Amino acid sequence: HNLTITQGKLFFHYNPKLCLSEIHKMEEVSGTKGRQERNDIALKTNGDQASCENELLKFSYIRTSFDKILLRWEPYWPPDFRDLLGFMLFYKEAPYQNVTEFDGQDACGSNSWTVVDIDPPLRSNDPKSQNHPGWLMRGLKPWTQYAIFVKTLVTFSDERRTYGAKSDIIYVQTDATNPSVPLDPISVSNSSSQIILKWKPPSDPNGNITHYLVFWERQAEDSELFELDYCLKGLKLPSRTWSPPFESEDSQKHNQSEYEDSAGECCSCPKTDSQILKELEESSFRKTFEDYLHNVVFVPRKTSSGTGAEDPRPSRKRRSLGDVGNVTVAVPTVAAFPNTSSTSVPTSPEEHRPFEKVVNKESLVISGLRHFTGYRIELQACNQDTPEERCSVAAYVSARTMPEAKADDIVGPVTHEIFENNVVHLMWQEPKEPNGLIVLYEVSYRRYGDEELHLCVSRKHFALERGCRLRGLSPGNYSVRIRATSLAGNGSWTEPTYFYVTDYLDVPSNIA
Rank of each mutant, 00 (worst) to 15 (best):
D222C: 10
N208L: 06
P346I: 13
Q275A: 09
V393Q: 01
A309G: 12
F462K: 09
T343F: 13
L453N: 14
E265T: 13
A335S: 10
H371S: 10
E281W: 04
G412V: 05
E350T: 14
R353E: 11
R471D: 04
S486E: 00
I276W: 05
P244L: 07
D229K: 08
A395E: 13
E217Q: 13
A407F: 10
K460T: 14
A263Y: 07
F462C: 02
F289S: 02
L277H: 06
S315L: 12
R218E: 12
G472K: 07
E442A: 10
Y500D: 09
N208M: 06
P205D: 03
G489C: 02
I366N: 00
Y500H: 10
P312T: 14
L379S: 03
F226K: 10
E265P: 14
R370Q: 12
S348W: 09
A309S: 15
P245Q: 11
F372Q: 02
V329S: 07
V423H: 02
E420A: 09
D311E: 14
P300E: 06
G322I: 12
K233N: 05
E442T: 03
E442G: 04
N435Y: 09
A381I: 00
A381K: 00
R447F: 07
S203W: 11
S320V: 11
L235T: 05
I410N: 06
D311R: 05
P413M: 11
N421K: 12
L487A: 03
I377H: 05
E389N: 11
S304Q: 09
P244D: 11
R376Q: 04
N421I: 01
E279H: 03
P434F: 06
I366F: 15
N339S: 11
S344V: 09
Y230M: 03
R218P: 07
H352C: 09
A309R: 12
P387Y: 05
W242G: 09
F289I: 02
Y212K: 00
S444T: 15
V214E: 00
K357V: 15
H211L: 09
R318N: 05
W216G: 14
R318S: 08
S458Y: 14
L321S: 09
A335Q: 09
H454R: 06
L437G: 10
G374D: 04
Y292T: 02
T210V: 10
A309L: 13
T347V: 06
Q275L: 06
C266P: 03
Y504S: 05
P431G: 04
V296D: 01
G234P: 11
E430T: 08
F462P: 03
Y448V: 10
T343W: 04
N326I: 08
N206T: 01
K278H: 02
G234N: 10
E404H: 06
K302S: 07
R390F: 04
